[in-house]
Design a protein around this nucleic acid. Sequence first.
RNA 1: UGGGGAAUCGUCUAGCGGUAGGACAGCGGACUCUGGAUCCGUUAGCCCAGGUUCGAAUCCUGGUUCCCCAGCCA
Length: 560
Amino acid sequence: MTVSEQPRPSDFIRDIIDDDIRANKYGGRVHTRFPPEPNGYLHIGHAKSICLNFGIAAQYRGLCNLRFDDTNPTKEEQEYVDSILDSVRWLGFDWEDRLYYASDYFDQMHDYAVQLIKAGGAYVDDLSADEIRDHRGTLTQPGKESPYRNRSVEENLDLFARMRAGEFEDGSRVLRAKIDMASPNLNMRDPVMYRILHADHHRTGSKWCIYPMYDWAHGIEDSIERITHSICTLEFEDHRPLYDWFLEQLGVYHPQQIEFARLNLSYTVMSKRKLLQLVEKGHVSGWDDPRMPTIAGLRRRGYTPSSIRDFCDRIGVAKTDSTINIALLEHCIREDLNRTAPRAMAVLNPLRVVIDNYPDSETEELDAINNPEDQGAGTRKVPFSRVLYIERDDFRENPPSRFFRLAPGREVRLRYAFLITCVGVKKDESTGEVVELHCTYDPATRGGDTPDGRKVKGTIHWVSADHAVQAEVRLYDRLFTVENPGDVEDGCESVLNTDSLEIVTGHVEPSLANAAPGTSYQFERLGYFCADLKDSSPERPVFNRTVALRDSWAKIEKRL
RNA sequence: UGGGGAAUCGUCUAGCGGUAGGACAGCGGACUCUGGAUCCGUUAGCCCAGGUUCGAAUCCUGGUUCCCCAGCCA
């Protein structure tokens, strides 16, 4: 390759694929799959897997299937299927005509089970769940064989057929693989293949009352779809011998399973169980609450698909357990939105400013640049008048050193407007709180220029009080107060950040009144904000803070 | 005291017997009509102990620490 080319992103999985292609292992084919269970919404950890699987397929000119691993009707719902489809699509990936469901293969799986029974590799066990657990042994002690382990093939066939026919109660019998009750790998101690579940399935309805277990189902699904590299997370490493055993016994096409470390992110949780709990206990408004690490939540928060893909590219793929700093995700969205988000002015914590020497009834329109990073974004008009709002933080009665903003007697630039000088401070007599500033403006500085070349250190944002539109602004912060909430022994609820949402009424420039839901803006000097997908309307604009701008003054001030 | 994995700057990640590199974070500076962005500079790491070798993050031996597994969940 030439020096100007980007080095191809690589990792241990791509290294394996490179080797396989070199060895012509699957005829040079690369075919991956993303196999979610529709029992919850997708989160940023799934995004890592999606980017990996679809990314590899694209890179090697292979294919990637989207497959629902819907083998447990008691936990799965159509709502989750819909949300997953939506999330994968939104992230920018296309499964074309390859949308599959494990439930589509239930007949085939059943036939394979019959085949395995006939080969003496599986048996129907009448033990209860408790008894099976007792027979399993422990980590250090071998298990005991079930008394039903050596039933004849005929009896097994008959019993399995009756299981399927619905003759038995839930939990009364299971089909088990006949492997080795003394195996040091507990997964090999006669794992359950089928359980009886008289439950309606979201796709097959009441057709089945026996459902396959993950280990039995997954390899078959991969095999049927001619997957080459079955990529999953580390906790399945122990299951690989079983994955291999089933496919070998069946004598069918055999993909290879490869495991990588799942994503952990600081200050949030990633397990579906914990996320479900946050939803069910009302700690958040739903799976798509902008504080959730779900794809739907990130989307509503204002994250873009490209920023999430970029994040997934940057974190890499390895087998080390790791926790990525949330700051990296924030970096990715800032970098993206800095390039693309139009700027606007909004005051979230207003302080009234009266320009004493500006005519009472006059209004003028000033030109503001929409995006300094993108010349093509053009300009817009911003109304200016005698009474304005500025941010309360941008005024100090007794400014500390290196404070460049407004203070009594000081001059600052109003962005794209005029230079103003503070000539008076009006306070509430009882509380001492500053309630209004009086300033004078320099008409020669229209647009913010200084014809005399004088330098002004501070530039602050503002809105015209009469023209500003009120908007609900939701200021989000991290959901948890500790870096690894998942590690908290008594549950992560005890470390929930009670200030993760602050709602304020912002005064925003009029151009923002018609912000289309889902569009992002940079509120200058504050951060990136996104018109809420669900709640924002022209009558009542609602903005979510995606992420604050880097604030180097806050750092300086902290050290003062 | 079973089995399966993993250990490289604060956090991720490259390295495949030959100068430990990148990203984020941090720190310093330049520039700036966003204390934004950008640019420049900089701090900081091979789990430990032996061994092999001219030379070890890499190979060998022995330790240590962490993660996963005893669902009829996936």
